[in-house]
Structure formats: structure tokens, C-alpha cells
Design a protein around this nucleic acid. Structure first.
Length: 817
DNA sequence: TCCATCCGGGG
DNA sequence: GTGTACGGATGGA
């Protein structure tokens, strides 16, 4: 008796039951219930391409590997005609009994003489399933089958058939944001083994809660007191269990909150069995820690923002305060966390503001997740990979899985990932990048900016660039090459796989942009997210082709793309100069001109005339007009100069690009100076004042007028002192601390001050408490901290390091203070 | 110049 | 989990 249900998949995993792999699709039904759909009708497989079409199927079918009470064997084979990098190939599809049998069986075949190559033996089974069955997360599907009796927190439905029935998308998944505060003495290492969690907050549509285990008088109804840390952790478990979120989100929760909670839970032997199947929260520690929960999507919104939209943000740090300020125009509460341990120990009555702070962090996290959801959703729908995975992928991965999904539809076999040696080889090959026309530093008037709309994607499409169209025999005589990469040409007769995909992305985006013009606000959010996601993805293809880890790697394609890019940007520059514009600056896909007596209208006409000569989808856009701007030269390093400029729009908004971040192992004085200099130059446009300011600081340093706490450098000890082969200053200081009997280990924060003397730096690094006010090495702080933090900024406006150090004039000015 | 090491986010 | 993980800056030699 088959039933039909409709549901939105959120995530996919598989389990082995009775010697068979069963896919578990976690999702929500169209009437809002959590559900787990089981599908046992999908078999693991991979491809073998035999040499010279020899028939080795029978031999393959006999493979059987026994190890560790696990049998791996081939269940059947199919012979298929597939495509591989532009050519037709005969491939044997080898089906095996279990996902885990794929490596075992393919290892046997690997060395066979009769085998040309093997493919797609490293695709996670659940992903393979989503690709092959064309199931896209977050889109409405229909399943036919019956409810099953299985231990689970959600209804379980065994499906015979699953298909997409509309383009309807899960509208408002249930999001639960959380945040913890831990007991953490000032500047000691964060140590989950030692220090307890003292507060825990949740925020969601119908929930607002702070738990803590010290009591005080309060009128805040969202505060709930518990008796112990153990009980607090139980509350975490319970709250997630009862709220039943689709998405559990935190800020850096992969790296901090959840691993911390897990460590503390282990201490009390509390099982965090919050998975829909009662499985425990899983912490995986690799280079980057990740945390997964079966059936609940764990979204680390920090990771998503930093990786996927970071490039489009102005902020140069990704701490919650900076990100929330820019994206939400909301801030963290201003409390001093350094005081928390003491207040926790000695004056509970003052804890209230920390509870508010804790809740606010959850609130900000929740708001960020809601704000990002349209973009996340669209990427998930385009790439076809669940939120959890998209959250943890970089651009190259997103592109790769997008191509993988399309490859299946195009009957293409995926190339393999490069092995170690190949990666090494690829890493060594570099090539010429984009054209950069360095601006003369200074202040300018009447600036007009032109941009090639999606330059590299449109070049790939217009010139049919891809690993399967390169240097084809059919076009050898006729094809056009980029002037600076004459040895590569691309087929003019048959459209390549990658150009097809990218053209599709571009045209879909163009269509959406057309619709946006006529749409109301309500639809705008998701349409804009969609066009932006399409753009992000299309823009990543060029980088992907040149990325050493890529399956569809082709440095020849990457070279050709940049060569065409240089060709077209030069074309624009030459033409602009001929028509009397002055070219200020150009980088990759944009050109900055000054009008020099011509009008804005002239500039727009110029763009139109350029467009008449461009092929295919290529287009030069008039980006904007800026009455004034400052250009900062970026003549550091040979490898792609960075964009650094500030423009003032007609509305008075400042557009700043490319100033580096300030790191924690810089002294406060260096951070302060950089911040202030940027402010003076960008806001007040007074370069002289900035110069005077820095000189003042240098003089103050020399005169030891800068207080000692401004010159303390913080560096974290990464491993045990004995494990260091080369000892930096922080290691030397750590050794001395240890000798004094202090407990110092990996993670300890080492504070030091560099003092005067002629020895190497590490022998002059001392503990702040050992250093007298006038003992720090002014020259070190000037040359290694303050100057480097502002040098590039000053280079941009025409001052050198020497100008900053030139103090004669300053000594005279001193009299004014 | 090359090689080893650290940062990020979180408290 | 049929897998893998970054990119840039600084200091020592």
C-alpha cells in the first residue's frame, strides 16, 4: 500500500543495513514535519577504461577481497559509451556490494596491464546518489513508499521512487543559533580540558534563552539558572532536541563552540545524541575541525561568510562584531570579557550584562544566518550539494562539484584528482597573469570607471576555451590564438563542455537581472542572491582551471584566458587614449579614466563604441563616476599587484579597496597608527597631517613616551617548546617562563617586549613585567612594527619610508606640543 | 634568498 | 567517509 509524500531534502548520508547501503535523506515534509527518507535502490560503482577495448569485464566480475571481516566484491558490470575530455570512450561501469568496497576493488584493478585508467572511484556515496538521481537539496520532491518502523526522532519513510516535482524551494527552514561563554582567564590559552563553559545562549524565531550556573537577582525572563556545568550541557542537548531545528548555527562553531561543548560533555560522560537517528554529534579534527550532526544541518556561518562572500565585504577582519556591523548594522555588546572570570568567581550580581552579551551574540549569529540564507540556498540549488557541504567548500570545490553534477548529464567521465607528484609539478608551473597599469599616486578629480562584465567567464565562452577543445586537429589551420599565447587554439566547430556550462551560468544570470528590473522587493532578495551566486560560480572557473588540485585542470586554458584578457583590456586603453581620455589605472578587467574636459556622456558613448567590436557575450560596462579619489600605488611583489584605492562617490560614499588586515601579533601601537593614518587620509584627505602624525609617534617612541602596554606583542605557542627547531622570540620567552615554574604548553599566549641591545631579537625579547618603561627598543618598534603598518599607505601618496623617518622638521614642531 | 612558523575565528 | 583541505606574512639562518 504505497503512500505519497512531498518533502524538501536537507542532507544525505548512507548507512549499511543487512550488507547493503541505504541512503538516508533528511528533510522536511511540505506540511512541516521532519522526515528521514530511506532509499535502498542505489548501488556503488566506478569506471574502468580498458586498453584497446579489450574485454576484461569477466575478469573484473570475479574480484573478491576479504579483510577485517568485511567482504568486498563486484556485483556486476556494464559496458557503456561515455565521453572523456572531448573523445568517445568505452568504459566498464563496475558495481560493487558496498561503498567501502570501491577502494578495495579498485586497488586490485589499479595495476592491471589491460587497464588504461580508472575513474570516479573517490566520490562520496551520498553525493554520487544526489548527482545520479538528480536530487537537488532544498527543492520540492515527491517520494512514493511507506512509513517504516525505525528508531528515530523523526518519521521514517522507505521510498521506492523519488522525483523532483517542482522548482518550489524550502522557504523558511527552522534556524537555531547558539553561543557559549567559557571561563577563560585573561590571555591564558583557551583550554577546553581545564576551563568550564559558564553560559550558553540560544536564539531563534520562538526561542530566546540564556543558561548559566551561578545565580543572581535579575528581571530578565530569558535567563535560566542551572546547578552545574553538567546540567548546562544537558540543557544544550535538551534544547536542540526539543526545538527540532533544520539548521543549527554558530559563529565559528566548527572551530570553537561545538568542539568545546563536546570536550566538556565527554568529561561528564554526557552523550550528545542529538542526531535524528540518536547518533552523537561528531567532531572531526583534520587541518580544520568540523562538526556534524545526523539530520541537523550544522551551519558555521562564520566559515560561509569568510569563504564565500568575504571578498565582497569591506571589512578586513571577520570577527563577529565587524561582520555584523557591515552586514546587519548591528554590533556586539561592549563588555570586557577579561573581567568575566573574576566577576564569575567573586561578584555574581554583576553577571547580568554578560548574559545580555551572550544572548546578543546568538541573536547576531541568527540574523547573519537569516541574511545569508538566500545566497546559501541559491548556491545549494545551483551546485546541487547540501548546505552542510557547501558551507565547508571553497570556490574551487564548488566549481568542481558543479561540473561533476553536469558531467553526469552530459555523459562525461570525470578526470581524476592529481596525485601528490602531479600536484607538486603543477604547483611549479606559473604563468603570466592579468595586465595592471599602475596608477600614479595622488588625488584625482572626475574619475570614470569601466568594467568588463565577467571578463574571464565571457572570454571562456566567446573563445570556447576548455580542456576538451584545446588544440583540436580540425581547426589547426584556421583557429585564432591569443596574440601572447600563440601555441594554443580552441575548436571553432564543436562547443566545449566547460564553455557550455559557463555560458549557461552567464545567460541564466542575465535573464535574472532582466527580471529583477521589473520585480518587486519581495522577490528581489532571492533573485539577487541567485544572480550573485551565478556570478560567483562563473567567476571561479578561470581560477579553477589553473588550480593545482582541480580535476579539469588545464594551465594551457588558464594561460589563454589571461592572454585574451590582456589583449582586450589593452584594446580599451589604446582606444580611450586615442579619444583623449587620460588613463589613470587599470587592473585585469577595469579601467579608470579621468575626463580631462570631456563629459560623462562622452564616456558612456565611448563604452558603447567599444562594445560594437567585442565578440560573443563580452561587454564593457560603465561602472560609475567619482568626483574625487585617491590612488595608492601597489608596487609590492611581482606576483599580481593588489588593488588599493579609495574613491568618493557623488553621494559622498567612500569606496575603499585593498588595505591589509592587522594581525594579533602586531603591537597595539602598530595597529593604532595604521588605523589613524587610514582615517586621516581617507576621511580628511590630509596627507600632510598623516605624515605629521606618524612622525609624532616615531618621536614619541624614541623619547619613550609610548606606554609599555602599547608595545607588547602577543604570539601563541603552537607546540611544545622542545619541538621547535627554530626558536622565534616567543619561544625564547616561553622557555624562560617555564624555567620560572609557569605552566607553558601548546596554546599558551606569550606576551613579550623587544628591548634594546645588539643581540638577535629572540635574546632581546622579554616579559612585559621584566621591562622598565624606557627599556623597549624604539628602533625595533619603528622599523618592524609602525613603519611596515603604514609604509604602503604612504607609498601610495608619494612619501617614502625615509620621509617618515626624517625627523628634523619634527623636532622643531615638538615645541608646539 | 630560502625555510620554518604563525595567523585567522572563538573565550 | 568511494575526499581533502589555505594563503600570506614574519623572523631566523
Amino acid at each position: 500500500m504505497a503512500e505519497i509524500i512531498q518533502f524538501y531534502p536537507l542532507d544525505a548520508a548512507y548507512k549499511v543495513q543487512d550488507g547493503k547501503a541505504v541512503i538516508n535523506l533528511y528533510g522536511r515534509t511540505s506540511d512541516g514535519r521532519q522526515i528521514t527518507i530511506l532509499d535502498g535502490n542505489f548501488e556503488p560503482y566506478f569506471y574502468v577504461i580498458p586498453k584497446d577495448n579489450t574485454s576484461i569485464s569477466e575478469k573484473i566480475e570475479k574480484i573478491r577481497v576479504e579483510d577485517d571481516n568485511q567482504s568486498s566484491f563486484v556485483t556486476r558490470t556494464e559496458t557503456l559509451t561515455k565521453r572523456f575530455l572531448g573523445k568517445e570512450v568505452f568504459a566498464i561501469r563496475v558495481y560493487v556490494n558496498l561503498p567501502g568496497s570501491v577502494p578495495a576493488v579498485s586497488n586490485v584493478i589499479k595495476d592491471w596491464e589491460s587497464v588504461s585508467s580508472m575513474h570516479e572511484f573517490d566520490i562520496p556515496f551520498a553525493r554520487r546518489y544526489l548527482i545520479d538521481k538528480n536530487i537537488t537539496p532544498l527543492i520540492l520532491h515527491q517520494a512514493e513508499g511507506e512509513y517504516a518502523n525505525q528508531k528515530s526522532r523523526a518519521a521514517v519513510f522507505r521510498a521506492g521512487k523519488i522525483e523532483q516535482i517542482s522548482t518550489g524551494t524550502l522557504q523558511s527552514p527552522k534556524i537555531l543559533a547558539f553561543d557559549i561563554e567559557t571561563y577563560s582567564p585573561f590571555d591564558a590559552a583557551i583550554d577546553a580540558e581545564k576551563n568550564p563553559i559558564i553560559m550558553l545562549s540560544f536564539y531563534g524565531e520562538n526561542i530566546k534563552k540564556v543558561f548559566l550556573w551561578k545565580k543572581f537577582k535579575t528581571n530578565l525572563d530569558y535567563i535560566e539558572f542551572v546547578d552545574s556545568e553538567a546540567e548546562l550541557i544537558e540543557k544544550f542537548r535538551e534544547t536542540v532536541e526539543n526545538y527540532k531545528p533544520d539548521i543549527l548555527t554558530g559563529y565559528f562553531s566548527d572551530g570553537f563552540d561545538l568542539p568545546y561543548i563536546k570536550t566538556r560533555a565527554d568529561k561528564y560522560k554526557i552523550k550528545l545524541d542529538i542526531g535524528l537517528d540518536f547518533s552523537e554529534l561528531r567532531v572531526k579534527s583534520a587541518r580544520e575541525t568540523t562538526v556534524a550532526i545526523s539530520g541537523i544541518t550544522h551551519l558555521d556561518i562564520f566559515k560561509f561568510i569568510k569563504r564565500v562572500i568575504g571578498g565582497t565585504l569591506e571589512t578586513y577582519t571577520y570577527d563577529l562584531n565587524a561582520v555584523a556591523s557591515e552586514l546587519l548594522d548591528e554590533k556586539k555588546h561592549d563588555v570586557s570579557l577579561a573581567e568575566l572570570p573574576n566577576i564569575w568567581d567573586n561578584s555574581h550580581e554583576n553577571l547580568e550584562k554578560f548574559c545580555e552579551y551572550n544572548l546578543n551574540d546568538s541573536l547576531l549569529t541568527y540574523n547573519l544566518a537569516v541574511k545569508m540564507l538566500p545566497t546559501i540556498t541559491e548556491i545549494v540549488k545551483i551546485v546541487g550539494i547540501p548546505i552542510y557541504d557547501v558551507n565547508r567548500m571553497g570556490f574551487s570545490q564548488l566549481v568542481e562539484w558543479y561540473i561533476m553534477k553536469q558531467a553526469q548529464q552530459f555523459n562525461e567521465i570525470a578526470p581524476n584528482k592529481p596525485n601528490y607528484g602531479e600536484v607538486q609539478r603543477r604547483r611549479l608551473s606559473t604563468y603570466q597573469g592579468a595586465f595592471v597599469y599602475e596608477p600614479k599616486p595622488g588625488l584625482y578629480k572626475d574619475i570614470v570607471v569601466f568594467d568588463f562584465r565577467s571578463l574571464y567567464p565571457t572570454i571562456i565562452s566567446s573563445h570556447n576555451i576548455g580542456p576538451d577543445t584545446i588544440n583540436c586537429q580540425c581547426c589547426e589551420e584556421t583557429a585564432k590564438s591569443a596574440p601572447e599565447e600563440k601555441s594554443y587554439w580552441f575548436c571553432a566547430k564543436r562547443k566545449g563542455f566547460i564553455p557550455i556550462l559557463i555560458e549557461d551560468l552567464i545567460t541564466r544570470r542575465m535573464r535574472i537581472k532582466e527580471i529583477i528590473k521589473e520585480e518587486n522587493d519581495e522577490k528581489f532578495t532571492f533573485l539577487d542572491a541567485r544572480q550573485n551566486s551565478l556570478k560567483l560560480l562563473a567567476n571561479s572557473f578561470y581560477g579553477y582551471l589553473g588550480f593545482f588540485g582541480a580535476r579539469w585542470y588545464s594551465i594551457e586554458c588558464a594561460r589563454s584566458i589571461t592572454a585574451w584578457g590582456r589583449f582586450y583590456i589593452h584594446k580599451v586603453i589604446d582606444k580611450a587614449q586615442k579619444e583623449g581620455f587620460v588613463v589613470l589605472y587599470s587592473d585585469t578587467d577595469s579601467v579608470f579614466l579621468t575626463l580631462d574636459g570631456k563629459s560623462k556622456n562622452d564616456a558612456e558613448i565611448f563604452a558603447e563604441s567599444v562594445n560594437l567590436e567585442l565578440p560573443g557575450l563580452m561587454e564593457l560596462e560603465y561602472e560609475g563616476f567619482y568626483p574625487s579619489g585617491i590612488f595608492v600605488s601597489a608596487k609590492m611583489g611581482a606576483f599580481g599587484a593588489k588593488k588599493k584605492y579609495a574613491l568618493m562617490s557623488e553621494e559622498g560614499a567612500l569606496k575603499i579597496k585593498g588595505f591589509e588586515t592587522v594581525r594579533r601579533n602586531w603591537s597595539p601601537i602598530a595597529k593604532d597608527v595604521q588605523e589613524r593614518v587610514l582615517e586621516i587620509i581617507l576621511r580628511e584627505h590630509d596627507t600632510e597631517k598623516a605624515l605629521v602624525y606618524v612622525k609624532g609617534v616615531i618621536t614619541d617612541l624614541k623619547a619613550k613616551r609610548i606606554p609599555i602596554e602599547k608595545v607588547i606583542i602577543h604570539t601563541q605557542l603552537q607546540k611544545d617548546i622542545l619541538d621547535y627547531t627554530s626558536k622565534g622570540p616567543h619561544v625564547a620567552v616561553a622557555q624562560r617562563l617555564k624555567n620560572k615554574g609557569r605552566i607553558i604548553g601548546p596554546g599558551s599566549m606569550i606576551k613579550y617586549v623587544v628591548t634594546q641591545g645588539n643581540d638577535i631579537i629572540r635574546n632581546r625579547a622579554k616579559l612585559p613585567e621584566e621591562v622598565k618603561e624606557n627599556e623597549y627598543d624604539a628602533d625595533y618598534y619603528i622599523n618592524n612594527q609602525v613603519i611596515p603598518s603604514v609604509e604602503r599607505i604612504f607609498n601610495v601618496i608619494g612619501y617614502t619610508k625615509e620621509d617618515l623617518l626624517e625627523i628634523k622638521e619634527q623636532t622643531k614642531l615638538e615645541g608646539f606640543f
